[in-house]
Design a protein around this nucleic acid. Structure first.
Length: 766
DNA sequence: AGAGCATGTCATTTG
DNA sequence: TCCAAATGACATGCT
């Protein structure tokens, strides 16, 4: 029986694990099918947060929390635990690998991003659609260049700096994490390289280059290269390729124009690039791995994964074009099928957002970085601003001085590097970033909470449970985690603590009443409930009266206490003489081939024996259980000596006290169980609240990123009367009372707005 | 032999 | 004040 149970348990667990895995897949698929293709592969990797979450849940469910040490389920518990640990290890192993893949992908895409980032602006330039674009291609290109420059580790940089147009090569040369590269055959790549180099060697200008590039693209289109399926499937392709998405799409040259664009830009802005090299492009140039100091990898795996999840959510919103931000940007940006014209300003926001997502995805540690704002005038700095990335976590939270609804956007969207204490930029004003501050504090609070929880005596399992509850987005966690800790858990495992406790409680009350009843009632009560059942082991017993059921079960064989508290010995022997075991330890011990009378005496309690020796004319049961009045009547009916009366009173007192002691102990146990349950519930509640907090933090982060990108978009497109851009270091955007956005010199309060003639009003596009 | 546990008993408190 | 119940403390028996 035991082994059967064991095997069944193991099999069940394994089956559950398999189901979990399958369920995860299914869930992920369904989830990703909602347009989260980019991370599909990442998530569908060996491990996923979903998987982890479910395992956590499963673990919690079977964690054994609350299992009484004596519970017969302990064996199962350990088996379960072992299996689950194995699964968990698998899960954890897989997570890093997934992230690693993401990282690599991102880096490639990053390279691509720099190239790709240009398409939108460059396209605008080519088309001349943007008024300001012609005048200041610098801004965006410079930023691109900056982003490129930042990635000095890539071949692309060198080529970019010299030729300003080799990105595709580099991309192709990159061992392919990129989809485009993957799809391209080596011949195609070689051909592309040759053609590009020819163009470059011939000194082809940007336009020429573009043209040739297009021709090549068209030529290649004739070939069955995978790239060409972009038309209809490109987006899908991109998504499938994961993080590359953004970078890949321009590079893939669905338009063919995007690629060339990027190169000229750096050339034109060379001087600025130098100065801004370190400055990531506003829209896309999010410095990633290269820029990030190794020591800054502070965020743990958990945080990283949460970032990825946040990215997924963000991307999902964007892809759905349901993003509240923009009706225009989202739709145009997400779909590659859009024509070149679509890459106008309106589309930028999307790439920006995607970049943000990308960075987070690929560089979880950078997840909180904010895209820096491009500063055209920063060139003055001999030491280019280092890593314009703002690490939210690293920046110290001085104070949250403004709410999100603050009219002044300056503080909110100050270039990230401004906040970093390590930055050398002196020209740019340092303004607090409320969002980052808020985020920091929230994160810190959470971390501190977790730490506190650990310090408070959270067991590892409980802490992991909390973690899981924080992690798990699925609704499974709560239900599954609800568990063993509570009496109800043991309820499921055996006869159930809850049920037994409740029933026993009920019966205990009845038992009290039962004292006044006859022996049959008492016997029935004990048979049903066993009176007071101390300990879980007893609670778990289906029926102590028939321990033979558990023969062969070692754990249960050890449980053989006498629970016939209220049962007089006479009734014990009279009603169940065949089962000496049921009569308890004493019965077992004394049941060894002893004469019936001797046995009878031995099994008698002291009071029984005393009563017999004193020749008390009625049973101890009556003495104990009769109501006071009846008891007095009984005493009055018989002529009893003082000794007999004293003994009878003692018997009654002790009998009642014995029952009272049993009830008292039972109540203690119930109280302990309830307290445990309460603690468990509180912890669950705490975990839930923390989870909610995490979600809020995540959403705030997303909002901040979106606002950041929007701010940058708007700001970089602003031009004064002479067509010059406003230097972000000198101007900032502020809300006006009517909801419009004003550009104002920094340091000028809203009250002084009227003094600035150059201020412009511009509708803020979402 | 001693620890740990379950149970019984006593003394006291409480309602 | 009495009684029953509750409970802490201790004793006993068993594994």
């Amino acid at each position: 029986m035991l082994y059967l149970k064991k095997y069944f348990t193991e099999g069940l667990i394994q089956f559950t694990i398999l189901l979990s895995l399958l369920g995860v897949r299914v869930d992920v698929d369904s989830y990703l099918s909602n347009q989260l293709p980019p991370l599909r592969e990442i998530i569908l990797g060996p491990s996923s947060a979903y998987t982890q979450t479910q395992f956590h849940n499963l673990r919690n469910t079977l964690d054994g929390y609350g299992i009484h040490p004596k519970s017969v389920d302990l064996d199962q518990f350990f088996t379960t635990r072992r299996l689950l640990n194995q699964v968990r290890q698998l899960d954890r192993l897989s997570v890093p690998s997934t992230e690693l893949n993401t990282w690599l992908v991102h880096r490639d895409s990053e390279t691509v991003v720099s190239t790709s980032s240009q398409p939108s602006p460059s396209i605008t330039l080519d088309n001349g659609g943007g008024l300001e674009d012609v005048n200041n291609p610098d801004a965006t290109p410079a930023m691109r260049g900056g982003s490129v420059g930042t990635e000095s580790t890539y071949n692309l940089n060198a080529e970019d700096s010299s030729l300003g147009a080799v990105a595709p090569e580099s991309n192709q040369e990159q061992p392919g994490s990129r989809d485009g590269n993957d799809d391209l055959s080596k011949e195609d790549i070689d051909l592309i390289d040759i053609l590009w180099r020819q163009d470059i060697d011939l000194g082809a200008g940007r336009e020429v280059f573009n043209y040739s590039n297009r021709q090549k693209e068209s030529e290649e289109e004739e070939k069955p290269s995978p790239r060409e399926n972009k038309d209809g499937n490109e987006e899908q392709e991109r998504w499938r390729n994961g993080v590359n998405l953004q970078g890949a799409q321009p590079v893939d040259g669905e338009t063919g124009e995007s690629i060339p664009e990027q190169f000229p830009a750096p050339v034109v802005v060379t001087a600025e690039i130098d100065s801004n090299e370190e400055v990531p492009s506003t829209s896309q140039g999010l410095p990633l791995a290269p820029l990030r100091p190794a020591g800054e990898t502070q965020l743990d795996l958990e945080q990283q994964w949460q970032d990825i999840m946040a990215i997924m959510e963000l991307q999902a919103m964007e892809v759905n074009s349901s993003s509240p931000n923009s009706s225009s940007s989202s739709d145009s940006g997400t779909t590659d099928s859009n024509t070149v014209v679509n890459f106008g300003l309106s589309t930028r926001s999307t790439p920006v957002n995607q970049d943000v997502s990308l960075h987070q995805a690929s560089l979880p540690s950078c997840s909180q970085d904010f895209p820096p704002i491009f500063y055209p005038q920063v060139d003055s700095t001999t030491t280019p601003p280092r890593t314009t990335m703002l690490r939210l976590s690293s920046s110290n939270s001085s104070s949250i001085n403004s709410t999100f609804g603050a009219t002044n956007l300056t503080g909110i969207f100050i270039p990230p590097h401004v906040n970093s204490s390590s930055t050398n930029i002196t020209s740019t004003p340092i303004l607090p970033d409320p969002f980052s501050n808020l985020l920091e504090e929230s994160m810190l609070d959470e971390i501190s909470l977790l730490d506190l929880a650990m310090e408070e005596g959270f067991s590892q399992a409980q802490a992991s449970q909390l973690e899981e509850e924080l992690d798990s987005d699925s609704g499974l966690s709560l239900d599954s985690s609800h568990s063993p800790a509570s009496p109800s858990s043991s309820e499921t495992s055996c006869s159930s603590a809850a049920s037994s406790s409740s029933t026993s409680a009920t019966f205990s009350e009845e038992g009290a009443v039962g004292y006044s009843t006859d022996s049959e009632v008492a016997t029935a009560e004990e048979g049903a409930v066993g009176g007071y059942q101390p300990g879980y082991s007893k609670l778990c017993r289906m029926s102590y009266q028939n321990p033979s059921q558990f023969h062969g079960l070692p754990q249960l064989e050890n449980i053989s206490h006498n629970h016939t508290y209220n049962l007089p010995l006479s009734s014990v022997f009279a009603e169940d003489p065949e089962l000496p075991i049921s009569s308890g330890k004493k019965a077992m011990k004394h049941s060894k081939l002893q004469p019936p009378q001797d046995l009878y005496d031995k099994h008698s309690s002291r009071d029984e024996r005393r009563a017999r020796s004193m020749k008390i004319p009625f049973s101890n049961e009556k003495i104990i259980n009769l109501p006071v009045e009846e008891f007095n009547e009984l005493l009055a009916k018989h002529h009893l000596s003082e000794g007999q009366l004293a003994l009878i009173r003692d018997i009654r007192r002790r009998g009642k006290n014995k029952m009272a002691a049993q009830n008292c102990r039972k109540r203690k146990l119930d109280t302990i169980i309830n307290l445990e349950q309460g603690v468990h519930d509180l912890r669950r509640n705490k975990g839930r609240l923390l989870k909610e907090k995490m979600e809020f933090i995540r959403s705030i982060r997303q909002m901040k990123q979106k606002m950041q990108s929007l701010y940058q978009e708007v700001f970089t497109q602003l031009r004064d009367e002479e067509g010059r851009p406003y230097p972000p270091s000198e101007y900032s955007l502020q809300y006006s009372a009517d909801g419009s956005v004003l550009i104002m010199p920094r340091g000028v309060t809203t009250a002084e707005q009227h003094r600035k003639p150059e201020k412009k009003q511009k509708d803020k596009k979402k």
